[in-house]
């Protein structure tokens, strides 16, 4: 599986771009898309999912241009959008049957597969109740189930962990890891911890542009030996923030413990092992 995004731009108005000259080559495995809200992650995913078309550039899957032949992508796509809805009058069974029909999936085994998915996602007991009565987390699980209906070869998850509890997040990560054995998984999030444990490669986006792409070590190396921890008085924080990039703060005995990225650390700072979050915040701040 090869997904090639070549010089893709999405122009909304004269000077407003959702995505600008974006290029990336993706192969089997998990790609984590990191970026703040409005960075262009969802725009990119919608174009890969053939929901919207690029203003410029091409997207090819296994050398098939999906901008021209969207159905090639749609036949092998599993897509979980960020803010998806459901028809509240349908129950989970009916909804998944409907989604299967949308994807062009049917046959004798369909009901058994839906049963399997509902069991796996622990929705079976409530499968006959209207989805309108489900909690946010349960709806999210129904959304996850529909991505797996057609044995997808390319799976797009846009902020998928919203509404899932910590335990479910862990199971969801395991599921994604399993999926990645056989297909391309693109996972978009602005929460670094959703991505750092599972992504083979990470792409960091800002203002519609790709600012860094590579495996996690490559990205983390950008801030190697520049991450420190120190303790300061709480009244010094504003001044400190002006000089250094503060990654996190915590309160200890009325003082502040600061984790920060800097080329010129303050006295008494202790060097820390850099993480993806440090690198992400650093790259976002300098570009």
């Amino acid at each position: 599986m090869h997904l090639e995004i070549q010089n893709v731009s999405k122009k909304y108005s004269k000077d407003k771009y959702g995505l600008k000259n974006f290029s990336i080559h993706i192969e089997k495995g998990i790609l984590g898309l990191l970026g703040a809200n409005g960075a262009g992650k969802s725009t990119l995913l919608k174009m890969i999912a053939t929901v919207s078309k690029p203003s410029l550039g091409n997207i090819t899957l296994n050398k098939n241009n999906i901008v021209k032949d969207a159905n090639y992508m749609r036949q092998q796509l599993g897509f979980l959008p960020q803010d998806f809805g459901v028809y509240p009058n349908l129950n989970a069974y009916e909804f998944l049957e409907y989604m299967a029909a949308m994807k062009g999936i049917g046959g004798k085994n369909l009901r058994a597969k839906i049963q399997q998915l509902l069991e796996g996602l622990n929705l079976i007991e409530n499968a006959k109740k209207p989805i309108g009565t489900y909690s946010g987390g349960m709806k999210q699980r129904v959304g996850i189930a529909q991505t797996l209906l057609n044995n997808p070869k390319i799976v797009l998850f846009d902020e998928p962990t919203v509404g899932l509890d910590p335990e479910e997040r862990v199971r969801f990560r395991n599921l994604i890891s399993d999926l990645a054995n056989d297909c391309i998984v693109i996972l978009s999030s602005h929460i670094v911890s959703d991505i750092d444990t599972i992504a083979d490669k990470v792409a960091i986006m800002k203002s519609g542009k790709l600012i860094e792409y590579g495996n996690q070590n490559h990205i983390i190396n950008q801030v190697a030996d520049t991450v420190f921890e120190t303790i300061i008085d709480s009244n010094q924080i504003s001044n400190f923030k002006e000089k250094h990039l503060v990654v996190s703060t915590s309160r200890i005995n009325g003082k502040l413990k600061i984790r920060y990225v800097s080329q010129n650390p303050v006295q008494n700072s202790i060097t820390q092992k850099a993480t993806l979050e440090d690198a992400y915040l650093y790259l976002n701040s300098i570009i």
């Binding site: 998915l117 069991e119 796996g120 996602l121 622990n122 929705l123 007991e125 409530n126 109740k129 009565t133 489900y134 909690s135 987390g137 349960m138 699980r141 996850i144 797996l148 899932l164 509890d165 335990e167 479910e168 199971r171 969801f172 395991n174 599921l175 399993d178 999926l179 056989d182």
Partner: peptide, 12 residues
Amino acid sequence: IDSKIGFKEINL
């Protein structure tokens, strides 16, 4: 409905 536990492992 929410009092139930979340999803189990899915063996793909």
